[in-house]
Write a protein that binds this DNA or RNA. Sequence first.
DNA 1: CCGCATCCGTTTCGATACTG
DNA 2: CAGTATCGAAACGGATGCGG
Lengths: 220, 220
Amino acid sequence: MPTTRSYRERCPIARALDAVGERWALLVVRELLLVPQRFSDLRRALPGASTNMLTDRLRELEARGIVRRRALRPPAASSVYELTGRGRELEPVIDALAAWGAGEPAPNDGSLTATSVLLFLRGSLRANPATPSLTVELALGDRIWTLGARDGEIEVAHDAPDAADATIRTDPETLNALVFDPGRLDAARAEGAAQVEGDVAGLRALLESAAVSARSLAGS
Amino acid sequence: MPTTRSYRERCPIARALDAVGERWALLVVRELLLVPQRFSDLRRALPGASTNMLTDRLRELEARGIVRRRALRPPAASSVYELTGRGRELEPVIDALAAWGAGEPAPNDGSLTATSVLLFLRGSLRANPATPSLTVELALGDRIWTLGARDGEIEVAHDAPDAADATIRTDPETLNALVFDPGRLDAARAEGAAQVEGDVAGLRALLESAAVSARSLAGS
DNA sequence: CCGCATCCGTTTCGATACTG
DNA sequence: CAGTATCGAAACGGATGCGG
């Protein structure tokens, strides 16, 4: 049964925590921030969450107008969960948490989802005004993403770009390592952990731009 | 016994929530954001939190380097809890939550602390670039605060200003109402809910500036 | 296989009472 | 004032089962 407890404060901070302060709630929002996901996608992304926990959180978030459930077109006997407009407004909260959390110690056995890495990469690039303009096609697992950097505006979308300057195929682990240490790019390519095509120098410069912010966040 | 569970993710968002995602943790940070507080101050500010809950959270936050316990000078047989530098870095998280939470429904029986109102007032003024420059002395309960607005820089401090343009003595409830509807200022003064001295017109303009942001936040 | 509902042991929460 | 002790209630976490 969904959780209903409240801090019973009129403070907006407490009200926000009443809505998304339950355990797992903000991680569900995080996973849905870049792309709608099915129940089983969320399970894979949040292996520590039990099924009934996920069901409860999704129901609560739906009841609060943060998440919406949408049926897929008839042939697919499934549905996806996606953020509502109100849910997307949580992005600044997620971004602030990511910036702060980068300074906390990481469990060395921790998992890492594609969404996590992409959000952190995006945040790092946004934090660096000198980020070069470039459109990158990112293939992580079986999903294709577009990373667009243009005049300091950084966007990540779950689709293939019309025209990519560079293409990289890798996994979240490797991409995360590259965000902190772009110097590993050649080693990752040699090991087969990453395949790169197109403007390799541009991609390298983009990663360097992210690394500047990423390292300063982690160091604080 | 303090909580030790973790999401076991290397995602910075999950790491942040590992540190401050437990129930009540961020409300403790909120209360300490503007001024160090004693245990009993926190109890009053968070009446829904049981004493052992507060003890647990304070110990955890202390262990994580977010809160520090400081003994007061000898005559006072007491100590205060205050944020560390790392703890103060949570301010953007708190601000983002406040901005989002203003759009959530408020329980009509909810309490409201001075800190809550001051943080929201500060956030509203910061969100409005047209905020007039003014120094206000704010007396809430038995505490004196300084609200300084200068060239768009808004600061709230727990002390008396060197020189105030205006002085207002009221309670958190009334101040919160004024942030949304400055038109009530005269009524509040007539009812004795607020006493104002000095540049009343300036204070009124400042409240109007806050109200513009406050209403747009609540309306979204 | 997907999306849940049910059951159950464990942890955390919340309220009250009590102590240095 | 600043906590500890205790205990029932709620939430969490994992396993299993069941209808599409």
